[in-house]
């Protein structure tokens, strides 16, 4: 058995092949992602702003002397001042308190919708892609149908039904109409992953289809799903504010950035703080989320950008 020993020693026999230098490389793997991410100034800016805004939305009301629905009868339509940091509305409500409350609502809705809809998309897309056949055709037909009807329209039509209901119903509706495009992408990826040899290997060892989906397919789309959830948060905030702007979303007395902007729009010239402050926070948040998502994509999924791909190609060639 001389050969066995010589061969058994083989992979470790030479210093370049052994674990030591490689180990170091893998330890830096997450650091590599981090470094790629940090290199993008926009992405870092986005992350910081997103975190700050979430903190502000939940901590802001605590430090504000005024409640969001608590009018100051001594100050109507006052510009920003030491007393009312963002000014007041025409019935004397504190704009800072209102913006913080609206931000809280919009951001919470965005986060929930992002997580829920991405989960739905992952499930539907993976099922359609993995099983194919009639499962695929049915699910994709539903996707097509929902894409034909703009979500804005459906939720607007349904809005009379959730007047007076919990805002969570509104979240559910938003989530129900924002998973379709991601589901298509997930389905496409599943079609590729299904043909991957490690999935085939699992199938040939007798692993059940659902286990394969949850053990091999979904985890391997994790980066895509994380990126997508991020982007969906931004999109959901936009949908929410848009619907609330027309009164089809968050209902009074509750406020969201959309309802605040709606009230502020008419007085944009006369009382600009009523419009620019909520609008500014909204734009800042969506911009930050988008920049963050884009940076995340670059860091987690470097092959998605060609420039990086070319760099890695030449790296491979020379490694």
């Amino acid at each position: 058995m001389a050969t066995i020993t010589s061969d058994a020693a083989a992979p470790g026999a030479s210093p370049v092949d052994g674990g030591a230098p490689k180990r170091e490389r893998s330890a830096t793997r997450s650091r590599l992602v981090l470094r790629r991410f940090l290199r993008r100034k926009g992405a870092v800016f986005g992350l910081i702003v997103v975190v700050l805004l979430y903190l502000m939305a939940f901590l802001g009301p605590l430090i504000s002397p005024w409640g969001y629905a608590e009018p100051d009868y001594t100050a109507f339509l006052q510009p920003p001042s030491a007393e009312h940091w963002f000014g007041t509305t025409k019935i004397g409500e504190d704009v800072f308190a209102q913006v913080m409350r609206g931000l809280q609502k919009s951001l919470t809705i965005g986060l929930l919708v992002g997580v829920i809809s991405t989960s739905v998309a992952a499930l539907v897309g993976a099922l359609a892609g993995y099983f194919g056949g009639w499962v695929d055709r049915t699910l994709m037909w539903v996707v097509d149908l929902l894409l034909v009807l703009p979500s804005f329209l459906i939720i607007a039509v349904l809005s009379p039904a959730f007047k007076g209901e919990s805002w969570l119903l509104f979240v559910a509706l938003l989530a129900a109409f924002s998973w379709m495009i991601t589901a298509r992408i997930v389905r496409g990826m599943t079609l590729t992953l299904r043909e991957r040899e490690y999935v085939k290997a699992a199938r040939f060892m007798g692993q059940s289809p659902l286990r394969i989906i949850f053990k091999h397919i979904v985890p391997n789309m994790a980066s895509l799903l994380i990126i997508d959830a991020t982007i969906t948060i931004g999109a959901a905030v936009l949908s929410e504010t848009g619907l609330s702007f027309f009164g089809f979303g968050v209902q009074p007395p509750d406020v969201s950035l959309g309802t605040l902007i709606a009230t502020g729009t008419d007085s944009v010239i006369t009382y600009p703080w009523l419009f620019y402050l909520p609008a500014g926070f909204l734009v800042l948040f969506v911009l930050a989320v988008n920049l963050f998502g884009d940076g995340l994509r670059d860091a987690l999924d470097p092959s998605s950008t060609r420039a990086r791909k070319r760099a890695t190609k030449s790296e491979e060639e020379s490694e």
């Binding site: 991957r196 040899e197 490690y198 085939k200 290997a201 699992a202 040939f204 060892m205 007798g206 692993q207 053990k215 091999h216 985890p219 391997n220 994790a222």
Partner: peptide, 27 residues
């Protein structure tokens, strides 16, 4: 049992080797 062509694609990149080797036995 089967051994595939592409060593890159044949192993689930998200699983450590011990889990990869354990999978058929678990099944």
């Amino acid at each position: 049992q089967v051994v595939f062509q592409d060593p890159m694609a044949a192993l689930d990149p998200r699983m450590p080797i011990s889990d990869i080797l354990a999978e058929p036995m678990q099944v």
